[in-house]
Design a protein around this nucleic acid. Structure first.
Lengths: 368, 368
DNA sequence: CGCCGGGAGTTTATCGATTCAACGCCGCGC
DNA sequence: GCGCGGCGTTGAATCGATAAACTCCCGGCG
């Protein structure tokens, strides 16, 4: 039989240390000592207090605690989209790091909406979180700097900080796109389509840079070797539409498609299937992110894997160690995972690692 | 040029109402009035105070605020697995409902680990959250009842409450499984495989009940028409292994597979592909959850859709309206989405709705 | 015998915002 | 000329936990 609600007790107020002290026949100071410095209290007294706590169902009031002692156990994180597996994996990494120090994560999703992001920043600031992790949307760096000026350390997620005052953790998307293109060139492809998203997103800009740069390095003229296709949304339908567009075009057809993320690649695969184009024989496909289902498709998708869990873990770690005053800016190198969509006989080849750890100047005005 | 950190200001303490009051030349009471009851303050005074707030970069201290006034703006949610798209969608629904009332969501992931769950429950209780949403793991109902006894309303997510004291929101999995089986029977299948997970999970138990019940209703003997396959993990690899097992068995081969969730269905599809069994011609496949990628597979997957967003939204709504004292227990009916994996010529047919809204007894000991 | 030290526990100031009783002041009405 | 109502503001008490300062008591030592 389950614990039952006190029938009709009509409890209004949660018990406080005062109530516990009264019941145990000691002072509030002693109760506080039992909770925070148990060794300073005589055994018998401690037992009485613990019994009283148990009997009343006393729970510490985190607000009062925090107000008085300044000890804060909460970290805030504002992610672009909580429904995107990329960010969920990051959140997992953050959580795992925070659990080590018995801290809690307050998660929020801005949906790329600056108003929502600003609202969450305000709420987190009011709650006096110990630190803040954020995937900045366009132009919100100033707001984040303002938060840090108020004494709350901030670390950027999936975004290299443009200023030395902010810590950051990111993945080198230029290199990532380069890995994908190099792989396709090695497979013999000489004319490659690139399905890219809006250039207001940093990721799209960087990945395009990597594509163009790599082609040039291999002595190819991007104007000839590259067919660029733009989509507004980074989802599957947009990818399918882009591919329909590509197949309708006159001139020599590319033999490979590189997609800015896995969702668009999914749409491209679907469209190719509908058009009866075999993958990878007549058209190779490479995605980006390596989300969980990329390996589970009927044609497993070659993709550029980002160390999502590590990304979150590291961001939280930098934040927690930021008391030292040196904001770190870390950039990871992505790994190419070759699967059947680009190679009939794929072979696993991890190429993973820390590219660079750059230490910026110390954070001005940091409490010590 | 971005807002810069006050070079070397060495700020230690955040400004308080007292600081604002001093700068504006008024008392703290007036500052508080400006913040909370601006109409009671004369225009000129109000302007001076607002200017002082702006100049100091004053941010309200949520702890002090909450301590004194008891007003709480945070809701806690403990989900089974934050990396599972099913729960992420639920979180989105919760967030959307909370945004209406300007509340914040504190999200945590228990990973089916009772210790982790207990730890989060304690933390949330200490923070004095306004309410708690939780997907209970095995046997944690008592702990949740204890939390509610302490004055924090609780609503169960994806789980019908076994006691009338707790609100709950769930999906009727018996009916959901029934929809899937009925569909397969209508397609002419008379021998069906069922890939199910561990019976310690409520979902697995209920879905099996639905399968058996539906077969019986159609005059079939489950012992003959049903081939049961068990897996330990609800992921793709387990699904693939289960299918390999099935194809090795002697006797008449089933013509359809119903999977307890979409991930296992994904594995089944992959294994069928490897064995050269055409879908749906020689083997139809139906999944459960209708996660986002189910429709994007090269063979789109028929699946039982759960109203995930609505689930979260409704749970939050019940929680917020629970002040009235009547915990609601809502059960939604799932919808079958027919796609190519079970029907060569699928047709969209939404069948969606609220099955039942049952009102339990009033919550004992509720503050009024 | 008087003083010191230290263990055990109590008292009290404090954190920052809120709230409410009280107060000063002004103008209106009798 | 006096009182009264009410607006705008003030000052102090308050929320619950914490920690520093303090009291008390007892044993040991010079």
């Amino acid at each position: 039989m389950p614990t039952q609600t006190d029938a009709g007790a009509g409890r209004v107020r949660r018990p406080s240390v005062t109530d516990v002290a009264r019941l145990a026949g000691v002072s509030v100071g002693t109760v506080s000592n039992v909770l925070n410095r148990p060794d300073r209290v005589a055994g018998a007294t401690r037992e009485r207090v613990l019994a009283a706590i148990e009997e009343l169902g006393f729970v510490r009031n985190a607000s009062a605690r925090q107000l008085r002692s300044g000890e804060i156990t909460t970290i805030g994180a504002v992610l672009l989209d909580i429904a995107n597996p990329f960010f969920t994996e990051i959140a997992r990494g953050i959580e795992d790091r925070l659990a080590v120090d018995d801290l809690t994560l307050m998660l929020a999703s801005s949906d790329e909406n600056p108003d929502r992001e600003a609202r969450y920043l305000r709420l987190f600031a009011e709650h006096g979180v110990r630190g803040l992790l954020a995937t900045p949307s366009h132009g919100s760096i100033d707001a984040l700097l303002a938060v840090q000026d108020k004494g709350i350390p901030v670390v950027l997620l999936d975004h290299v900080s443009p200023v030395p005052e902010l810590g950051s953790v990111a993945v080198d998307d230029v290199t990532g796109a380069g890995l994908a293109i190099t792989h396709l060139l090695e497979q013999g492809h000489r004319r490659i389509a690139f399905v890219n998203g809006p250039m207001t997103l940093r990721q799209c800009v960087d990945r395009r840079d990597g594509v163009v740069q790599t082609l040039t390095e291999h002595g190819l003229d991007p104007a000839e070797a590259l067919v660029e296709l733009g989509v507004d949304n980074l989802n599957a339908d947009a990818g399918a539409a882009a591919l329909d567009d590509l197949l309708d075009r006159p001139g020599p057809r590319p033999t490979a498609v590189f997609c800015v993320n896995d969702l668009t690649a999914l749409g491209v695969l679907r469209a190719l299937r509908e058009h009866g184009v075999p993958v990878p024989e007549e058209m190779a496909v490479v995605g980006y992110d390596d989300v969980s289902f990329a390996s589970m498709l009927t044609t497993p998708l070659t993709s550029v894997r980002q160390p999502m869990h590590t990304l979150g873990w590291t961001a939280a770690d930098i934040l927690l160690r930021s008391g030292a005053g040196e904001p770190e800016q870390v950039v990871f190198t992505p790994e190419l995972v070759v699967r059947a969509s680009s190679d009939p006989a794929p072979e696993a080849r991890p190429r993973f690692g820390l590219a660079a750890t750059r230490r910026g100047g110390r954070i001005a005005g940091w409490p010590r």
